[in-house]
């Protein structure tokens, strides 16, 4: 029997070593695997290279991993945000290395790694400082620069539901980097709202087939969904109950 479910997040991340390259899914907070990141912080692996679109929001999730001093380098497209104060401080103090990659090149480099592509010519960034030093070629009259794949030792992603074979479905724009990161890492660990019985996911709607998934960690249905996964609302963008958010703002 194939069963990729792992009882808890701590067990799922326990073999991530110091110095590992770890892809972390999510665009801002949407699709960020917060429970897996918290487990990685508790696990203690350090000197990590992190691949994500951003560089953390607020003080939780990826931002907390950065704040714990575990990240040597981050590969991302958009580190500077209104709530990226943790990264901003580390960067200004010279305590974190940044590789800035245009978002589409970031996505395609991850996809290329998962697809076994050795490198590819991209028109994005041609003539800009982000393409300096890269091999260039003109193909049918258009200019391109050579971009190499980004691989990882581990990918930590979030999905809506999985079965025990690791077939995944996502929800809305929380899908973002999940499918491509799942394919680009040696070991892919997925947190899901719920584990569903094998055979209950419609094969026509599976987005990430289980071949790309190694471990599945059910973490519970999020507060803005009901037990059937239907949207019920009543939260802010951080997923906090609206009443609590209002009270906090009133106190601030």
């Amino acid at each position: 029997m194939i069963d990729k479910t792992t009882p808890d997040a701590a067990a799922a991340v326990a073999d991530i070593p110091d110095g590992a390259t770890v892809m972390i899914g999510g665009f801002g907070r949407a699709g960020q695997p917060v429970e897996l990141i918290d487990a990685l912080i508790a696990h203690g692996a350090a000197d990590l290279t992190i691949v994500n679109n951003n560089a953390g929001n607020g003080d939780t999730g990826l931002a907390a991993l950065l704040a714990a001093g575990r990240v040597r380098k981050i590969v991302c497209s958009f580190p500077r945000q209104s709530d990226s104060w943790v990264f901003d401080g580390l960067y200004r103090d010279g305590r974190i290395e940044l590789e800035l990659v245009p978002q589409g090149n970031l996505a395609e480099r991850i996809r290329a790694a998962g697809a076994g592509i050795g490198a590819f010519f991209s028109p994005t960034g041609v003539g800009t400082e982000l393409a300096e030093g890269k091999e260039a070629r003109t193909i049918e009259g258009r200019d391109y620069v050579l971009e190499y794949p980004i691989r990882a030792d581990f990918a930590l992603i979030a999905a809506r539901a999985a079965d025990r074979w690791g077939n995944l479905v996502y929800r809305e724009t929380a899908r973002n980097f999940g499918p491509i990161m799942a394919s680009a890492a040696t070991t892919t660990i997925v947190q899901v709202d719920e584990l569903v019985p094998l055979g209950s996911l419609d094969p026509e709607t599976v987005v990430t087939p289980g071949i790309f998934v190694d471990r599945v960690v059910p973490v519970g249905i999020r507060s803005w969904l009901d037990a059937d996964g239907a949207f019920v609302g009543g939260v802010d963008l951080e997923g906090r109950p609206l009443a609590a958010a209002t009270a906090e703002e009133a106190a601030a």
């Binding site: 497209s77 958009f78 200004r92 245009p102 978002q103 090149n105």
Partner: peptide, 16 residues
């Protein structure tokens, strides 16, 4: 100098 660079999808949109 000292600014934190962030590009996002701007370069892809511009040429796409």
């Amino acid at each position: 100098p000292g600014a934190i660079p962030a590009v996002g999808g701007a370069m892809d949109l511009a040429i796409g």
